[in-house]
Design a protein around this nucleic acid. Structure first.
Lengths: 214, 214, 214, 214
DNA sequence: TATGAATGAGTCTTCATTCAT
DNA sequence: TATGAATGAAGACTCATTCAT
C-alpha cells in the first residue's frame, strides 16, 4: 500500500489515495510534524501533484477533516433507525460511533486530537461535525425528558453542558479504547450506555445532587 | 505584558518567569508552532538564557507540563477534606478542578490538548497526573459501591472504562467551559455532579441498560 | 568564479559542482570553520539543495574525502607501470603523487590536514587511503630487500615504522611544496627519491646506526 | 585534577592552571570544538577569570602554542651536548624529541595538528618553532657534508627540501608513535636514525638516484 | 497527467564574550 | 581576586512551495 507509483489514474481516484495517505500521516504524526514529502511518498505520487490537486498543506488537512467527519457522521446516521425507541437509538448510535472510531483510529486521531490543536481554519470543521452529533444526542435527551413527563424546562446552560459531558465522555472513551487492546466497541458502548442513560433518567426524574450549605 | 527586560534576577525567579511565558505560548500555539524566540521575548529575556536554564525546547515543554500538572493535582487535593462524605468529596474535587482549569486556561490547554498530541516524552508526564486523578475518582466510586451495599465486584474492565468516562467527561467539560463565556466553575461542577453521581448511583444499585435482542 | 547560478542541471552534475565547492572551502578553512552557506554560494546553489543531495555537513565532508582519496590513489596507480623495476616504480609513484597534490592543493589539505583533525567518521576514510599507499610502499621495500639478497626478516615494528616514516616524509614534503612557490613536482620527487632510496639501500645492506654506549 | 576550585591563588599559578587545562582541551578536541566553558571548568575557574587573564580564545590558544613550543624546543636543546659528534647529537636530539612528544601527547597534538589547521595567527607561532628545529637539523647536515669532504654546494632548494623531509618524517613518526601503543621513544628514534643518517650519508657521498631517460 | 530540480524563510541551538557585583 | 547573570551573532538543518518540462 502506497509508494507503488502506478501511472495515470483518473483525478478522483488519485485524490482519494492522497487523502488516504494524508489521514494516515496526519493521524500518526500530527499536523505540524507531518511533512508533505512523507504524504506524497506514501500516496505514491510526486509532491507537485499533491499541490496540483489539493493546493496546500492547510487545504489538504481541511479536506482530510471534512472527509473523515462526513464518514463518521454518516456511519452514525446509518447505524440508527428512526423508528426505534430513544434508548435503542442512543445505543445504536453509540455502537456505530465506537465501531467506526475503532476501525479508523488515525481518522479519529485527526478529528479529535489534531484538528482541535490548531487554530481556526480547522477547529471550525470539527465543530460542525460535533454540532451534528450533539444535536442528535440533545434530541434524544429531550425525548427522554418528555417521556419522563417532566417539566420540560431544564435551564439551557445545563442542557448544553449535559450534552457536552455526554459527548466528551464518549470521545474520551473512544480514544481510550483505541489505546487499550482487547476492548470491543460493544463493551465500550455498554459502559457508556449504562452510565449515561441511567444518569439521564435520574436527572430527568428530578433527582439532583445539591451541595449542602456549609 | 512581558518584554519588560528587568535586569539581573536570581536564577530561580527567572526560571519561573520563563516557565510562565512558556505555558502561555505553548498553551496558545501548541508545542510545534510555539517558537523559542517568542517565549524568550514574552519572558523578557534573551534566547540563550532560556537555553542556559532550561536546556532545550523539549525540556522546557516537559518542565511546563510537570509544573502545571503538579499545580492542578495540588489544587484538587487542597480542595478536598478527607473527613467529609464521599459525595461531598467528589463535589469539592470537581469544584477545585474546574476552578483551577478556568483560572489557568493556557495551562489546561498545555496539559489536556498539547501534551497529549506529541509522542512519548510528554504523554508520560500527563499520564502520571491523570493516573492520580483517576485513582481519586476510583476511590470514591468504590466507596459509593460499598455504601450501596452492592456486590462489590464490578468487572475490572467496566470500572476502568467507567473512570475513564467520568474523567473524560470532566476534561471535556473543562475545555468547553473555557471556550464558553459566562459559565462558572460552580455551574460546571453542578452539571458534572448530577450527571456522574446519579449515573453512578443507578449503576451501583444494579440497574443496568441492556439492549433487547433484535 | 562560482555563484553563476546556472539553472536546472541533472543531479549528478550538480553533485559534482557541490563537491568541487566543498573541497575548496573545506580545504581553505577547515571542517569546523567552513559554513554550509559559503559552500552553497560557491557552488552556485541554494543551501537546501546541498542538503537534499548530500544530507549533512558530515556526509558532505565524508563525500569530499572519499572522492579526493579515490582520485589521489587512482592518480598514483595510473602513474605506475607494474612491469618496470622497483626503483622506477617508486619514482613514478612519487612523481604522480607530488604532481597530483600540487595540482589539487585544497584536496590535499582536506585529506592530510583537515580530515585527520576531526574524530572517527573522517579519520577512518583517510586511513583507508593511507593504508593503500603504505601497502604500495611496503611492497617496494620488500622487493628492494629481496634484491639486496638480504635476510628478509626486518623486525615487524621496524618495517611499520619505516613505512610510516617514508610516507610521513612524503606527506610533509607535499604540504611544504604547496606552500613554497617555484618548486616542481619533479624536484620534490627527486629529493624524496634520493633520501628514501639511498636510506633504504643502506638499511637493506645491513648498515645500521647504533648509539655508542655512554 | 581540575574542577577543585580552590580559592585565591596568585595570578601566575592560576594562569598556568588555565594553560594546562586549555592544552588538554585544545589537544583533545581541536581549536574550534574546544569551548571556553569546558576549559574554565577543567581549570576549576569561572569563565570571566579566564578572560581576565588571557583575554580571548585566540590569545589563549596562542599562549598554549607558545608555551608548548618553548617547552619542546627546550627539551630538545637540553638533550643535546654541543661537544659531542654530529651523529650523536642527532641521536640525542631525536631521543629528546620523541620522549617529549610521547610524554605530552596533547601538547604535541596542539602543535602539530591543531595549530597548523587554523589560519595565520597560529601557524606563524609554530613556524617559528619549526624553523629552530630545522636549523638544528640543517647544521648537522652541513657538518655531515663537510665531514664527507664533499663539494659543499648542494643546491639550496634541495637542502631545504631535505630538511623538510627529515623533520616531516620525524613529526609523522611522533604522531604515529603516540597512536601506537607499546612503541618506545628509543625505538622510534632508532628507526629514524638508521633511516636518516644512512640516507644522508649516501647522499653526501654523491650517490644519487637519477631517473633513466625514457 | 505528472515530475525532477530548486529555493525563501524560518527554527533550534551554541558560543565567545561582557556586565554588575 | 573572583563570579553569577546575561546576550549578539551566527550556523546547521527543515519545510512548504514553485518552476520548467
Amino acid at each position: 500500500m502506497g509508494g507503488a507509483r502506478t501511472k495515470r489514474m483518473p483525478r478522483a481516484v488519485r485524490e482519494q489515495q492522497m487523502l488516504d495517505a494524508a489521514v494516515q500521516i496526519f493521524g500518526r504524526r500530527g499536523y505540524m510534524v507531518a511533512s508533505m514529502d512523507e504524504i506524497a511518498e506514501l500516496a505514491g505520487v510526486s509532491k507537485p501533484l499533491v499541490y496540483l490537486y489539493l493546493n496546500s498543506k492547510e487545504d489538504l488537512f481541511t479536506a482530510c477533516i471534512r472527509r473523515e467527519a462526513a464518514a463518521l457522521t454518516e456511519a452514525v446516521r446509518a447505524g440508527v433507525r428512526p423508528d426505534l425507541p430513544a434508548d435503542r437509538r442512543l445505543w445504536d448510535g453509540l455502537l456505530a460511533f465506537f465501531a467506526h472510531t475503532a476501525e479508523h483510529p488515525e481518522a479519529w486521531s485527526v478529528l479529535h486530537l489534531h484538528a482541535r490543536t490548531h487554530g481556526e481554519p480547522f477547529a471550525a470543521e470539527v465543530a460542525a461535525m460535533r454540532a451534528e452529533i450533539v444535536a442528535f444526542v440533545t434530541r434524544l435527551v429531550a425525548i427522554a425528558a418528555r417521556e419522563a413527563h417532566q417539566d420540560p424546562d431544564l435551564p439551557e446552560d445545563e442542557v448544553a453542558g449535559l450534552a457536552e459531558a455526554l459527548v466528551g465522555a464518549a470521545e474520551s472513551l473512544a480514544t481510550w479504547a483505541n489505546a487499550t487492546p482487547g476492548v470491543t466497541a460493544r463493551q465500550t458502548a455498554g459502559t457508556m450506555m449504562n452510565f449515561a442513560w441511567a444518569g439521564l433518567g435520574n436527572l430527568m426524574a428530578g433527582q439532583r445532587w445539591v451541595p449542602e450549605p456549609t
